[in-house]
């Protein structure tokens, strides 16, 4: 049975009211709180370490899996290994995400290591939201690691969002497009404030003929927060990759973006772009001419930027 705080966090990280429909596994303070399997999606606890295996049958059509994590116990350090096996031709949406509510003085931490084995011509949308709240002085720390292996024709859209509340994040993403015509799209949205720190490191290997990668990172750093982006794309065959990092810097924040592209094949076509800057004064002025206050204008610009 979930309490109100846990229910609120579930809504924030997984848009879940209650337990919704479809396959679901809710982990709360290191324990399985709720699980439901479907005919095509089976979730099982690991026997050798903490975590779950999620097996999605081939040809599963437009089903959802929710695997949210809730941490409400101050001082908890959670480490979980989740492995996804997605069958050939499956078409699924996976919603993960972690919310920490810390009312105590000790740091609360969740480390989620997710590995995806995406079968031939499977189509996956993976959404991961991070959220933190609570009045305690203890930090809310989230360190996700996501590794994906894509077979022939597989297509994955990875959307990660962290908007406020998380004090410290070290994110690592590794994608191996090993099959021909496999495709990865990564969309990262991040907002840090106060003294928060967020590091995002990424390795994408384009090994399959005509594989594609697109990385779109949008971030806003406010107050004294710090962000570091280090996306690396390696093209080892005829392939296409595009990395775009855009950041808005505000207050006394600091942002580093270090996109790196490596071509190891004459037909590998890789592009990177990075831009860091403040909100343009003309943008604020334009919205003010439409009746907004400077504060409302700024909020509107950030809302669109991080959408």
């Amino acid at each position: 049975m979930l309490n109100d705080i846990q229910k609120h966090i579930l809504e924030m990280v997984a848009d879940l009211k209650g337990t919704g429909e479809g396959a679901i596994n809710i982990r709360s303070d290191g324990q399985k709180a709720f699980r439901r399997n479907t005919e095509n999606i089976v979730i099982e606890s690991k026997t050798d370490k903490d975590g779950i295996d999620i097996r999605i049958a081939p040809h599963t059509h437009q089903e959802h899996v929710h695997i949210p994590v809730v941490v409400t116990e101050s001082g908890r350090k959670d480490l979980v290994y989740n492995d996804f096996y997605i069958g050939d031709y499956a078409d699924v949406t996976i919603v993960a995400g972690c919310g920490i509510h810390n009312c105590g003085d000790c740091d609360s931490e969740h480390n989620g290591l997710h590995t995806f084995h995406v079968g031939k011509f499977a189509k996956v949308k993976y959404t991961e939201k991070h959220y933190g709240d609570g009045e305690g002085s203890g930090k809310r720390i989230l360190n996700p690691q996501t590794v994906l292996y894509l077979e022939e024709g597989a297509s994955v859209t990875l959307e990660t969002t962290q908007i406020r509340g998380v004090d410290d994040t070290k994110r690592y993403t590794k994608v191996v497009c090993q099959g021909p015509n496999s495709e990865i799209i990564v969309r990262e949205n991040l907002l840090t404030h106060n003294d928060q720190r967020a590091d995002s490191e990424m390795d994408i290997f384009l090994n399959g003929e005509d594989s594609k990668a697109q990385v779109i990172s949008r971030s806003v750093a406010q107050d004294n927060s710090t962000q570091v982006f280090y996306p690396r794309v390696e093209g080892n065959c005829k392939c296409f990759g595009h990395v775009q990092c855009d950041a808005i810097i505000m207050g006394s924040s600091k942002v580093r973006a270090i996109p790196e592209i490596t071509c190891n094949h004459v037909d590998a076509s890789l592009i990177h772009e990075a831009a860091i800057g403040r909100i343009a004064g003309e943008q604020i002025l334009k919205l003010m001419t439409l009746g907004m206050t400077p504060e409302e204008a700024e909020a509107k610009i950030l809302e669109g930027f991080l959408r």
């Binding site: 949008r218 855009d246 343009a280 003309e282 943008q283 002025l285 334009k286 003010m288 001419t289 439409l290 009746g291 907004m292 206050t293 400077p294 509107k300 610009i301 669109g304 930027f305 991080l306 959408r307």
Partner: peptide
């Protein structure tokens, strides 16, 4: 500017700004 806009004045910029994501 905000007060004037709310009083019924609007202004079309010669070189309007762009908004990523909007």
């Amino acid at each position: 500017v905000t007060d004037r806009a709310r009083m019924g004045i609007s202004y079309g910029f010669q070189q309007p700004p762009r908004f990523k994501g909007m």
